[in-house]
């Protein structure tokens, strides 16, 4: 059951510089993650959804220490004490890195094309300090079995796998080291629905057995709703709605969330849903609009939305919404 916080994000920001010319002069910033505050609770699944490019992967990378935060803080519970990630010593960082793992969105880019899968899967175990070869091979074998890939495939190269097989290899690699927090970035999107169901059931079972915490990033809302305890909806680097999974799906309150839910294609014939079609272009994270980041595309935009940015506020029962229409 979800409990206390294991990670605390406070106004966390990741900005990438935008450069121009041969001297790489900085002319602005891509505000990929732009002030996110939330707690990730022990043993929960926190779903993260939102438009392509809104900063989901960057958020995951910041948690993984793969991307430096440019502002705010991320703190982790390490042996009962919250420690800010930026202040960890090198051995502590190593310990933290054992605690968190990420299943990357682009499995092909995440695997070294020159190395056999065996090496890709063995490396994290060596880093973990598992010295005995037999022990490593036993872990490898059970990880491969877990994701349902024949053992002799260990000696193939990444390009010799199908898209979904590569994705399963990445899942095996992230889970074999027994982490406590796993960032799943589009971890099942390349799988057919049956294997996807098997993997999701497995992720749930492992969560119960090993008390794992998941940050579950995906575009398939039906899957996110099924997997998550809570869901954070992101738009242009910010969280615009955060609520219990069922509440969010039954009663979406931010206009962006509403349009997102209405766009889900249904697996039935001849019943094309009425979509809340978004007007206007996707704004750029480089020149963000003033006021509410969504106002240019919002069907219910008011005068105040153009100038004042709404704060993410609890509107009762832990349902957080950043929208002036709620005031």
């Amino acid at each position: 059951m979800p409990g206390d916080a294991i990670l605390k994000l406070r106004d966390a920001k990741v900005w990438y510089p935008v450069t121009k010319g041969v001297f790489r002069r900085t002319i602005g910033h891509v505000k990929a993650v732009d002030g996110i505050s939330l707690d990730i609770r022990r043993c929960e699944t926190l779903g993260v959804v939102g438009e392509s490019g809104c900063g989901k992967t960057t958020l995951g990378k910041a948690i993984m220490l793969l991307e430096q935060i440019t502002g705010g803080s991320i703190a982790a519970d390490m042996d009962g004490q919250f420690r800010e990630l930026s202040s960890l010593t090198t051995p502590e960082k190593l310990r933290y890195r054992k605690m968190v793992q990420m299943i990357f969105q682009d499995p092909y880019a995440a695997l070294n094309p020159m190395k056999k899968i065996y090496t890709a899967l063995e490396e994290p175990l060596i880093v973990q300090g598992i010295r005995s070869r037999e022990e490593r091979e036993a872990i490898l074998a059970s990880a491969m079995e877990m994701v349902n890939i024949p053992l002799d495939y260990l000696f193939k190269y990444p390009h010799e796998f199908s898209g979904g097989q590569r994705q399963r290899i990445c899942i095996a690699r992230a889970l074999e080291t027994a982490p406590s927090v796993v960032v799943c970035d589009e971890a099942v999107s390349a799988l057919d629905v049956s294997i996807q169901a098997q993997i999701l059931n497995l992720l749930r079972q492992l969560q119960r057995e090993r008390h794992l915490t998941y940050v579950f990033i995906a575009h398939d809302l039906s899957v996110v709703q099924y997997m998550s305890d809570r869901i954070a909806v992101m738009y242009l680097g910010k969280v615009v709605e955060l609520a219990d999974s069922t509440a969010l799906y039954e009663n979406p309150r931010h206009p962006y969330t509403q349009s997102l839910l209405s766009a889900v294609p249904l697996p039935v014939l001849g019943r094309r849903k009425r979509r809340v079609v978004l007007q206007g272009d996707v704004p750029s994270p480089i020149d963000k609009p003033s006021g509410c980041p969504f106002h240019e595309r919002c069907g219910k935009c008011k005068e105040i939305c153009k100038t004042v940015e709404p704060a993410l506020v609890d509107r009762g029962g832990g349902h957080l919404v950043a929208c002036h229409l709620e005031d």
Binding site: E51, S52, Q105, E186, A190, H219, L221, A263
Partner: peptide
């Protein structure tokens, strides 16, 4: 698999 990484609005 052209749209696995796209949100539903851009996908549509």
């Amino acid at each position: 698999e052209p749209t696995t990484a796209l949100d539903v609005t851009i996908q549509s």
